[in-house]
C-alpha cells in the first residue's frame, strides 16, 4: 500500500452525470468489491512475469481530474444560486433555436447566461446575444485543440467571464456531438438533450451513453411530423430501454408548439433546491 494506492474514496467520480451510481450505497460498494477482487487476480496472474519488474497499483479513474473540476464549478454555481443546464445534441438538432425561443419566453432574458461551445465561429453566440442573453463563448479550436466536447476546465474558464450574481439560469450549450459530451461532467445541475425527429427512431440505441446521461429529452422539429415516416411511439420505446426514468417533452422550436411544457419544466427546476440535482 503506497502513496499511489488511491482507491477512489472521494465519494464521486464514476458515473457522474450518467444517471446512476449515486442511487444507493449498495451500488457503490458493489463496484469497489469488484475492483478489489480483480486487481488481486491480475497481480497473481503476472507475478514473476518479468524479473526485476515492479508494478504500481494505481486504480485511478481517468475522469477524476475532470470530475473534481466539475464539482468545483457546481459548488460555485450552487453558491450563486444559478441553476445550470448542460444542453447537448447532434449538430443541427436545434439547440440554438430552442435557446432563442426559451429566452423569448423569459421576462428578463438578461438574467440568463449561456456558455456557448463551438469548434469555430461566433454565429450561435451572436444569435443568443441578440436574443438578450449574457453569452460566454468558448471556441474549442481557440487554444483547446479543437475538442469535440466541453469539459469542466473549459467551463470553469468560461464561468470567469460571467457575473454569476446577475444570473438566475445558465445554459452550457455543448458542442454538437452525440458521443463525447456525454462523457464529461461540466458541473451542471441538469443535463438536457435536444433530439430532432429527422434523426430517426433508432438513435437512443445507437448512442445509448448520451441518451442515458440526460434528465430530459426535448423532441424537436415536431412541425415536420406530417412530412416524415417518423414513428414517435417507436422512438419513445427505444428511449425508455436505455433511460427508463427520462422526461420527454415534444416541441417545435420553429412554431413554438410545446414550448410551454419546457418552460414549465425549467421553472419547476429553478424552484427546486440546486444541490439535489448534483
Amino acid at each position: 500500500m503506497g502513496r499511489f494506492h488511491r482507491h477512489d474514496d472521494s465519494g464521486h467520480g464514476h458515473g457522474h452525470g450518467h444517471g446512476h451510481g449515486h442511487d444507493s450505497d449498495e451500488a457503490h460498494d458493489h463496484h469497489h468489491d469488484e475492483l478489489g477482487d480483480h486487481h488481486h487476480d491480475e497481480l497473481g496472474d503476472h507475478s514473476g512475469y518479468e524479473t526485476g519488474a515492479d508494478r504500481i497499483v494505481v486504480l485511478e479513474r481517468i475522469f477524476d481530474e475532470n470530475d473534481r473540476r466539475a464539482a468545483e464549478n457546481r459548488k460555485l454555481l450552487d453558491d450563486a444560486g444559478v441553476l445550470t443546464i448542460n444542453l447537448m445534441s447532434s449538430p443541427g438538432a436545434g439547440k440554438t433555436t430552442v435557446l432563442e425561443r426559451t429566452l423569448g419566453a423569459f421576462a428578463a432574458p438578461e438574467r440568463v447566461g449561456i456558455i456557448e461551445g463551438d469548434i469555430e465561429t461566433s454565429i450561435d453566440a451572436d444569435r443568443l446575444k441578440a436574443a438578450g442573453a449574457r453569452v460566454s463563448l468558448l471556441n474549442t479550436a481557440d487554444g483547446f485543440g479543437g475538442e469535440c466536447h466541453l469539459d469542466a476546465p473549459m467551463v470553469a474558464d468560461a464561468l470567469k467571464r460571467l457575473d454569476l450574481a446577475d444570473l438566475d439560469l445558465l445554459f452550457v450549450e455543448n458542442v454538437g456531438n452525440l458521443v463525447c459530451p456525454a462523457e464529461f461532467d461540466v458541473g451542471a445541475h441538469r443535463s438536457v438533450m435536444v433530439y430532432a425527429i429527422t434523426e430517426g427512431e433508432e438513435k437512443p440505441l445507437k448512442y445509448p451513453v448520451m441518451f442515458r446521461a440526460v434528465d430530459v429529452v426535448l423532441v424537436n422539429k415536431l412541425d415536420l411530423l406530417p412530412h416524415l415516416d417518423f414513428d414517435l411511439g417507436l422512438f419513445r420505446a427505444n428511449l425508455v430501454q436505455v433511460n427508463p426514468g427520462v422526461e420527454v417533452i415534444e416541441l417545435s422550436a420553429r412554431t413554438g408548439e410545446g414550448l410551454g411544457s419546457w418552460t414549465e419544466w425549467l421553472t419547476a427546476a429553478r424552484t427546486a433546491p440546486l444541490a439535489s440535482g448534483a
Partner: peptide
Amino acid sequence: APLDLVSGEEFLITTIDLDD
C-alpha cells in the same frame, strides 16, 4: 426491467509496470 448497471462504465488506470 430495468437493470441497475454494475459494470461497463469503468475507465481507470489499474496498474503500471516498471522496468527498473
